[in-house]
């Protein structure tokens, strides 16, 4: 039986030190819903789990109207969707946190873990992308901030360097007349990995869309921002034509694999459909 050690740390500095000492076979333990399966199945070479849930900063959830929302990397989903400020200002975060796993998973799973797992199908990632979230990392060289959309570099791979770990995620305050939404396609109602998922944020100036971000997941080695979809929407009122153009842009940007969950053709089709649907919901939310 391979040795697997557990260490609990109480500060960011202690976490960095433990990860440095542990080397490449040390991993951060947050909610554990991915890493415990990987560590115990020996799917990865892991011999040390560094539990960061004793660090206040990693477990925080705080909002203010000027500064926005800061979510600790290990703050569990149930706490996020139970928060009144998140419900009011970030409904797209409610969309994703309420359908990641079942209730028992949501009691532990975190946005930070979802990002660090860096799956192409991670359900909170398109939401982070369209909400312009940033990831705060701490490491041996101090702190740095990485835009969420620059974090993942491939399936299970990301920009984190040895000894670094994710402390928190920051979401800017929602702009006036803005709205965002997330949807996932799975062949059942709950408890499955996305065939395709998508998120959109829109801002309006009068009737015209003044700013947009569209993101699709499970369609490439990482979730994608689709600037061509956003460009099809900005500068004009929403219309069937502009929405269709955005949907076509997502379909064109998608470069999925075929696997047991879906074919390439189905995934490209779904990228268009879910872009269209998230635009409609985001627009409804923007108009209050």
């Amino acid at each position: 039986m391979q040795e697997l050690r557990y260490a609990k740390v109480g500060s960011v500095d202690d976490a960095v030190a433990a990860l440095q000492e542990g080397g490449p076979t040390a991993r951060v333990l947050a909610g554990g819903t991915d890493i415990i399966v990987q560590a115990r199945a020996r799917a990865r070479d892991i011999d040390l789990l560094v539990d960061v849930k004793g660090i206040d900063e990693v477990m925080q959830l705080s909002f203010d109207a000027d500064g926005g929302l800061t979510v600790g990397a290990a703050t569990p989903c149930y706490q996020i969707y139970g928060d009144a400020a998140v419900r009011e200002h970030y409904p797209a975060l409610i969309d994703c946190t309420t359908l990641i796993g079942g209730t028992g998973i949501q009691g532990r799973a975190s946005l930070g873990g979802n990002l660090c797992n860096s799956s192409p199908s991670g359900d909170s990632l398109p939401v982070m992308y369209v909400l312009e979230a940033t990831a705060e990392l701490a490491g041996p060289g101090g702190r740095r901030t990485v835009p969420a959309e620059d974090f993942c570099t491939g399936p299970g791979r990301n920009v984190m360097q040895p000894g670094e770990f994710l402390v928190s995620l920051h979401f800017p305050p929602p702009a006036p007349n803005s709205g965002a939404a997330f949807l996932r396609f799975i062949p059942r109602n709950e408890m499955d990995i996305a065939v395709v998922n998508a998120a959109t944020q829109l801002r309006f100036d009068g009737d015209a869309v003044s700013w947009a971000r569209v993101s699709i997941g499970a369609t490439a080695p990482t979730p994608l921002l689709v600037p061509e979809a956003a460009a099809a929407l900005v500068g004009r009122p929403l219309s069937d034509e502009s929405i269709a153009a955005a949907a076509a842009a997502s379909k064109a940007a998608a470069r999925p694999i075929a696997d047991m969950r879906g074919s390439i053709k189905q995934r490209k089709h779904l990228a268009a459909v879910y872009t269209q649907r998230t635009i409609a919901i985001a627009a409804d939310r923007a108009r209050g």
């Binding site: 609990k8 554990g32 415990i36 399966v37 028992g104 998973i105 009691g107």
Partner: peptide, 16 residues
């Protein structure tokens, strides 16, 4: 139930 929350005990380390 772990400290008032529903969890899957297979996805919690005993040491935690």
């Amino acid at each position: 139930m772990l400290d008032g929350r529903l969890v899957n005990s297979c996805l919690v380390m005993a040491a935690e």
